[in-house]
């Protein structure tokens, strides 16, 4: 049985048994992949899974109109499972039903604990792409002025469409800091100061939480290399605090916690 067929069979069973009222998976739209929302066991035939299915579907679990149609089951590659584990660690989820898929195999229907165990067992060494690592190293080798110029040019493209925020499963604030205007910390203008503040704060709010799923960068209509920011922070989180988010549903938030012996070599 192919992965797609196995997903359909499990989705139909979950819906028929009432364990899920809504299955979120992938469907084909021409040569593209779009999210599918299936609530009828007879409708599972639209579900497919292949290596073109890239969107992080965990993002839908924060939407009230999706939650209200739950319980929800999600087709989840490792990136999606890691997002769900972070959401659980942050008390945004208490339970999850996933149809766990990997690049190599279909792992069946799992709950949150099962997904976390699978991640630790089979997907503990998920690493950023060599291209991304190389791009970050190249940026770090530049002078500060060159880096400033690089980002000024990149952020100049930002239209403030907030697709980066919308596509990220971990951007779930009921009201985003950029939408608070008393006082207005971040200018909403798609101009240099507003774009810099927005992009820096967006990245920093993910510090210690980001699982490097790549949804923000993939969503950016302007092609801004947001993953460079996320990767730099993730590396720092691993180096300084030994944390890799998305594996432990009971993990404490990196920025919401502290240790007396945290490194302070940079403090005078």
């Amino acid at each position: 049985m192919s992965t797609s067929e196995a997903i359909r069979a499990d989705a139909a069973r979950l819906l028929a048994e009432g364990r899920a009222k809504l299955v979120i998976g992938y469907r084909a739209r021409g040569p593209h992949r779009a999210p599918a929302f299936v609530s009828d066991p007879a409708g599972v035939d639209v579900l497919i899974y292949d290596n073109l299915c890239k969107q992080n579907l965990a993002v839908y679990l924060r939407k009230p109109e999706v939650r209200s149609r739950g319980p929800v089951a999600v087709v989840a590659p490792p990136a999606v499972m890691r997002s769900l584990v972070v959401l659980a660690a942050e008390s945004q989820l208490t339970e999850a039903t996933v149809l766990a898929v990997g690049p190599d195999a279909y792992h069946g229907v799992l709950d949150l604990a099962g997904a976390a165990a699978l991640l630790k067992e089979k997907y503990a060494d998920l690493a950023p792409s060599p291209e991304l690592l190389e791009a970050l190293a190249k940026l770090d080798a530049m002078s500060p002025q060159e880096r400033a110029r690089f980002w000024t040019d990149q952020f100049a493209k930002c239209t403030r469409c907030y697709a980066c925020r919308a596509a990220c499963p971990l951007c779930y604030c009921a009201r985003c800091i950029v939408e608070k205007n008393v006082p207005q910390w971040i200018s909403t203008a798609a101009a240099q100061h507003g774009n810099f503040a927005w992009q820096i704060i967006r990245a920093f709010h993910q510090a210690g939480r980001c699982t490097l799923c790549g949804a923000c960068e993939a969503a950016c209509p302007q092609g801004i290399p947001l993953m460079l920011l996320n990767l730099a922070l993730s590396e720092e989180v691993a180096k300084q605090f030994g944390e890799k988010p998305g594996y432990d549903p009971a993990a404490k938030p990196v920025i919401g916690s502290w240790k007396p012996d945290d490194d302070q070599g940079f403090v005078r």
Partner: peptide, 18 residues
């Protein structure tokens, strides 16, 4: 202590952006 963690990461982000 909370601030120290925040700065440890934030300074990396600002350094990266120039």
């Amino acid at each position: 202590y909370h601030a120290r963690r925040r700065w440890a990461l934030f300074r990396r982000l600002l350094d990266l952006t120039g």
